[in-house]
Design a protein around this nucleic acid. Sequence first.
DNA 1: TAGATTGTTAATCGATTAACAATC
DNA 2: TAGATTGTTAATCGATTAACAATC
Lengths: 214, 214
Amino acid sequence: MDSKNTESISLTTLQRLPNYLRYLKTCEQQGIVYISSVMIAKGMDLTPMVVKKDLAVAVITEGKPKLGYCVESLIYDIEKFLGYDNTKDAVIVGVGKLGHALMAYEGFSNYGLNIMIGFDANVTTSEVNGKKILPMNKFVDLVKRLNIHIGIITVPKENAQEIADLMVSAGVRAIWNWAPIKLEVPNNIAVKQEDLAASLAVLSNRLKELMKKE
Amino acid sequence: MDSKNTESISLTTLQRLPNYLRYLKTCEQQGIVYISSVMIAKGMDLTPMVVKKDLAVAVITEGKPKLGYCVESLIYDIEKFLGYDNTKDAVIVGVGKLGHALMAYEGFSNYGLNIMIGFDANVTTSEVNGKKILPMNKFVDLVKRLNIHIGIITVPKENAQEIADLMVSAGVRAIWNWAPIKLEVPNNIAVKQEDLAASLAVLSNRLKELMKKE
DNA sequence: TAGATTGTTAATCGATTAACAATC
DNA sequence: TAGATTGTTAATCGATTAACAATC
């Protein structure tokens, strides 16, 4: 069916797609109906070539020479490609300050993610934003029963591996790990490491380069 | 002096460096004195070649054939390279749940970052972990006076650009932006965008690939 | 000495950039 | 029709991988 995306999309393109979406939606709101790769590139600090290449792999919509791409169709296609059209349920383990922040963040609904329930070893609050917080002993049963495939880990690094194991045993297939530790999981489980140390390394390196120039 | 790092280091290598550090410290704690690129690669899911190349650009320490690299020297060199040896002060603007979590996170001290003060339009708490939270009208003066060069933005996206402008006017040179919006700043200012939508796109794409295989 | 491991040089791979024919 | 823009094919660039001589 999907003759496209048979071979997997490049990581860089994939990471840019949500940004296209964000930009195109602001264009749509301004009443722009057709947009060229040149315009998109200008608005997003890319080159037109990157835009054309990215769209070519992620989108069915074809651009019209001289006119550009239909904004509405692009939005539709990209949302479809990213799976934003059918929201995926997730659970989060570790409702400390960070976990709390992620649970409360409204923006994830725009990304097709619904954090349904929070779990914590020490439950201190019963709800965040109308979402229940439950003790760990309910975890495996509930995740299995609700058939939830995405787990978010925001526990201290000492406990992250055991939580990952628990998630895998409960049928979780994709883990978003915020603990600064490399998780060991079976190779049929996807892990995305959120690496703040790497982000900081990039930022402070750029800062150093800037300072050197003066 | 530093004949190395004249030409800038590759982004991928840079992002891996904090992970080397983390791994090497666990080795040190286990009493390992010398370690080979093969061992490091095994412990970190890399290839020995990547390890050797990365170390070659970031480190002064030379490996000894048959023996490997001195763990202690590697740690010293990488910390130096990443600037962890002299801690940098930062301020954060937007002490909602996320900002609160970042302010309270102890781990940043390991990365040479010290979030000194929080600012917020509506101050509800006066302190987080012994760090003051102040109203915005104190921002420019204080940041200038303390000569702070790093700013973290955790305000809603509607306000992120004005906060960035304010930071720039106060002498901030590097911005870590958690709001999902592309900031416009002068080109002598470094910006690191924290892009959760991109992370989620990667994770859910991998999940999709996994599901397809079954 | 023999062999494992480093460090460097060459080959491969993939992504970005350039060039250009097709087309509205 | 003329010209801007798409989509595709080729060239470049940079990072990863392979090969191998040097060396402890």
